[in-house]
Simulated scan of single mutants.
Amino acid sequence: MTSFTDVQTFLPFWLIWLMNFKFCLSEDVEDTTPLYDFYDNLTSVDYSIFPQLCVKATNRSFRLWFMSTFYSIICLLGLAGNLLVILTFLYFKRLKTMTDVYLLNLSFADLLFALTLPFWTANSVTNWVLGIVVCKIMNTIYKVSFYSSMFLLSFISVDRYFAISKAVSAHRHRSRAMFLSKVSSAVIWVLALIFSIPEMAFTNVNNNTCTPYSSNYDPLRISLQASQIVLAFFFPLLVMSFCYSSIVITLCQARNFERNKAIKVILAVVAVFLVCQLPYNLVLFWITVETGRGGIKDCNYDNRLLYATDVTQCVAFLRCCLNPFVYAFVGVKFRHDLLKLLKDSGCMSQERFFRYTCGRRRSSGATDTETTTTFSP
């Protein structure tokens, strides 16, 4: 049985519960409206004011086949063409002019650049899994080879300018030409290394991607891309424009049967540089401007700009496999040495070698020099 003391203890709990229940029933209905208004406001929120994630699935699928295909082609052609140039120079020991030294260094730079393309492909289509060390090494090799290649193209045009437009003064300093070419080549590689230091320092694995930028709106991106445009495009373009325009003027005043051919070669050199580099640098300049404005807010516009970047960058990378054909293989002597190298290595028969060489070489003292044609850039 329940004792009187237990009843006294149990009774206050019931009284408290009954008082609370009565209080809830007696409350005014208006007291609950703020709660209902809060939930109504949640359902009527304008979510368009909040930033939305920009979906780039189509860009990733495009990169998967586009970059894998074209980067592989560029890599194979770049390796084959630049290796042939290097082997020809070393096999025949034909480093006799400044242009020869610059062409050999250009081939090494383009060869290193081509070797980085498989890593660029992997970095563009999938997550970076090779670690921070390989990331920094790959990006450093790419930047050093990129800057050195652009500077070497400028120095080749300067050497051709002195050899053709300033032939008298160039012949006077011919004894020091080889020494100057080796020193200037070393300076070019050192400068390329110095200009690559910022990206070496900031390159990291961010969001499973090997990149020097923490995001697409990183302020560091503005300074790095602006310096690349100035140093690796506008500077070579100005130097090449001045030198080759002066060469064309000099050739137009000459009365040589090789004049028209030489002018076509120079126009081809300038055209290849502009076609490969101008579209990419224009897109890069516009991206730099948009980054300085605070980034791109329109997702469709951002995706179109990414497509333009991928396509123009692939075209710009073509230079590493086109340079051997534009600069080296155009020379009469170089083509002959290349064919002789293929014959000596067993890649070409004796009959075919004589078919390509006999009757095609003209012994003109003004056009056929020890290494390449005088008017060849």
Rank of each mutant, 00 (worst) to 15 (best):
F10S: 09
L15P: 02
I16L: 15
F21Q: 14
F21I: 15
D28S: 13
D31L: 15
D31F: 15
P34F: 10
L35T: 09
F38T: 00
L42K: 10
V45E: 15
D46L: 09
Y47F: 12
S48A: 15
F50E: 07
F50G: 02
P51Y: 00
Q52T: 07
L53P: 01
A57K: 12
T58Q: 05
N59Y: 05
S68D: 06
C75P: 07
L76H: 04
L77P: 13
L79P: 01
L79H: 04
A80Q: 11
N82C: 11
T88F: 11
F89C: 11
K93Y: 02
R94G: 06
L103Y: 07
L106Q: 00
F108N: 02
L111D: 08
F113Q: 07
F113S: 04
A114K: 00
L115T: 03
L117C: 06
L117T: 00
P118E: 01
F119H: 08
V125M: 13
W128Y: 03
W128R: 01
G131M: 08
G131Q: 07
C135W: 06
I137H: 02
M138Y: 08
Y142H: 03
V144M: 07
S145T: 05
M150E: 02
F151S: 10
S154V: 08
S154T: 00
I156Q: 00
S157T: 10
D159F: 07
R160E: 00
Y161W: 05
F162V: 02
K166V: 09
H171C: 13
H171T: 14
R172S: 10
S175P: 04
S181L: 08
K182A: 02
S184H: 13
V190T: 10
L191W: 07
A192L: 09
I194A: 06
I194R: 03
I197K: 12
I197N: 02
P198Q: 03
E199A: 08
S214N: 14
Y217D: 15
L220G: 10
I222G: 00
Q225I: 03
A226S: 13
Q228R: 03
F234C: 04
P236F: 07
L237F: 14
L237N: 02
V239E: 12
V239S: 10
M240W: 05
Y244V: 12
N256V: 15
F257P: 13
F257C: 10
E258A: 12
N260T: 13
K264P: 05
V269D: 11
F273A: 01
C276E: 00
L282N: 09
L282K: 06
L284F: 06
W286H: 07
T288F: 06
G292L: 03
R293M: 14
G295F: 04
K297Y: 06
D298H: 14
Y301W: 12
N303F: 08
A308N: 07
Q313M: 14
Q313F: 15
F317T: 01
F317G: 08
F317M: 11
R319V: 12
R319K: 12
R319I: 10
C321K: 04
L322K: 01
F325C: 09
Y327S: 08
V332F: 07
V332D: 08
H336G: 00
L338G: 01
K340H: 11
C347P: 07
M348I: 04
E351F: 03
R352D: 10
F354P: 01
Y356S: 03
R360D: 05
R361T: 00
S364H: 07
S364E: 11
T367E: 10
T367Y: 05
D368V: 10
T372K: 12
F375T: 04
